[in-house]
Computed example of a mutant assay.
Amino acid sequence: MRKLKMKKLMSLLLALTMVLALAACGSREANKTQDGSDLDYVKGKGKLIIGYTNYEPMNYTDENGVFTGFDTELAMLTCEKLGLEPEFVEINWDTKEVELNAKSIDCIWNGLTIDDERKAKMEITKPYVKNAQVVLVKEGTAYNGTESLIGKTVVAEQGSAGENTVKADDNLKQANFVPKTLQTDCLMELKSGTADAAVLDLTLAKTMTGEGTSYNDIVIVDYLAEEDYGVAFRKGSDICAEVNKIFDEFFEDGTMAALAEKYGLELAK
């Protein structure tokens, strides 16, 4: 009887050991998939999900209803080299990093300013386009530096380099700062007179203001900060290095220069 009980106990222990071993193996495989190559992850899907906001001339829909822009075209050309289908998803700029880490998107490709804080949280490509933060007012407005805006209403896109510039300027800190969802919202506030000034990206300001635009009475009066644009991926993503290689090719073969000329932009190198 004792021998029979011992055999049953040994069989039970053996079965339990096998279950635990299989569970451990499954856990290792799950972790391997979760922590593996980001490039393999997107190639497994066959597409790169690109987060963007409506930001002319980087990503926007033209008068013919065609989705285009410098970043749009560059992303499509890069995806072709990677063997991936680009899928553009409009995002809330203020929650862009949350969406990136949640894998709702695979990158932020939308005139993203490179800074140390973002580099600490995301994997960002080498610079490819130059930009600056500029002050815009209605034509005829008296302006003598940012001290002219103390106590005035100033708008910038929430979570943007423009907002950071406002918060870093001693005079603009004393303005009535109102964050807006989009840079285009800032232009509308300025045109309607509900804002006295806006701090926006030069790339957008040059495209959307002046003669022949809807904001022909809006002018650039000051340059506050020069910066560069990069494409952001999840921290540690190996996609970034591959995109950098492709960018090098595009700089060398003239693709970058042709796109910059088409959209009136200045390259970072």
Score class of each variant (00 low, 15 high):
Met1Gln: 13
Lys7Arg: 13
Lys8Asn: 09
Leu9Ser: 10
Leu9Lys: 08
Met10Tyr: 13
Ser11Phe: 12
Leu13Lys: 06
Leu20Tyr: 10
Ser27Lys: 12
Asn31Ile: 08
Thr33Trp: 15
Val42Asp: 00
Val42Arg: 00
Lys43Val: 05
Ile49Asn: 08
Glu63Asn: 09
Asn64Cys: 04
Gly65Arg: 09
Thr72Ile: 01
Glu73Phe: 00
Ala75Glu: 00
Thr78Gly: 02
Glu80Ile: 01
Gly83Gln: 01
Leu84Lys: 05
Phe88Leu: 05
Val89Met: 09
Lys96Cys: 03
Ser104Gln: 13
Ile105Phe: 01
Ile105Gln: 02
Ile108Asp: 07
Asn110Arg: 06
Asn110Gly: 11
Thr113Phe: 05
Ile114Pro: 00
Glu117Ile: 03
Arg118Met: 00
Glu123Leu: 09
Thr125Ile: 12
Pro127Ser: 11
Pro127Ala: 14
Tyr128Ser: 08
Val135Ala: 06
Leu136Ile: 06
Gly140Pro: 07
Ala142Glu: 15
Thr146His: 10
Thr146Trp: 09
Leu149Val: 09
Lys152Ser: 13
Thr153Ala: 02
Ala156Arg: 01
Ala161Leu: 05
Glu163Asn: 07
Glu163Val: 04
Asp169Thr: 03
Gln174Cys: 07
Asn176Lys: 14
Phe177Leu: 03
Phe177Trp: 03
Pro179Cys: 07
Thr181Tyr: 01
Thr181His: 01
Gln183Lys: 00
Thr184Asp: 09
Cys186Leu: 04
Leu187Lys: 10
Glu189Pro: 01
Glu189Gly: 03
Ala198Leu: 08
Leu202His: 08
Leu204Thr: 07
Thr209Asn: 12
Ser214Cys: 03
Asn216His: 11
Asp217Pro: 04
Ile218Arg: 10
Val219Gly: 06
Glu227Ala: 14
Asp228Thr: 14
Gly230Pro: 05
Ala232Ser: 15
Arg234Gly: 06
Lys235Ile: 08
Ile239Cys: 14
Ile239Leu: 14
Cys240Gln: 11
Ala241Gln: 14
Lys245Leu: 09
Asp248Ile: 09
Asp248Tyr: 09
Phe251Ala: 13
Leu259Pro: 00
Leu259Trp: 11
Lys262Thr: 11
Gly264Met: 13
Ala268Val: 12
